[in-house]
Computed example of a mutant assay.
Amino acid sequence: MSYLPFGLRLVHVAGHSMEPTLCHGDLLVVRVGAPVRPNRIAVVQLPPDAQGRPRPLAVKRVTGRDPADPTRWWVERDNPRVGVDSWLVGSLHPTEVLAIAVMRLWPRPRRV
């Protein structure tokens, strides 16, 4: 993440898990500490992989609260064939939802 003023950051999308909404190389403006709401795109910290290795930060869609634990968030990928989401690793603690997307800057601006 690149830093901007007012809690804003720049994030490059890596990978194809959010296609067709976001593509590899898209540039997002995100706000750290923004309120989390369902159907928003977020930068999240997923749990370590099966070998205990930390995963890189990920861009996912917050789909809602975990029905089994409403204090946690459920996140999903838009491309069901690629990537990791709550269906594979479970829901996330609120501290693992790091920032909320405000807009996509490149290749052309649009709200996410």
Rank of each mutant, 00 (worst) to 15 (best):
M1H: 14
S2W: 10
Y3T: 14
G7Q: 15
G7S: 15
L10A: 08
L10Y: 09
V11R: 01
V13A: 07
G15C: 13
H16D: 15
S17Q: 05
M18T: 14
E19P: 04
P20E: 10
T21H: 15
T21L: 15
H24Y: 05
D26L: 09
L28G: 03
R31W: 10
G33K: 13
A34G: 08
R37Q: 11
N39F: 11
R40E: 15
A42N: 02
Q45R: 15
P48Y: 13
D49T: 09
Q51L: 11
Q51H: 11
G52D: 06
P54K: 06
R55T: 12
P56Q: 07
L57P: 02
K60C: 01
K60N: 02
V62Y: 00
T63K: 10
R65A: 08
R65V: 05
R65E: 06
D66C: 07
P67C: 08
P67M: 11
A68C: 11
T71Q: 14
T71V: 09
R72H: 14
V75E: 00
R77G: 06
D78I: 03
N79W: 08
R81S: 12
R81P: 01
G83Y: 04
S86P: 05
S86I: 02
L88V: 07
V89N: 03
S91N: 12
S91M: 07
P94L: 03
T95L: 12
T95Y: 04
A101Y: 01
A101H: 02
V102S: 10
W106I: 05
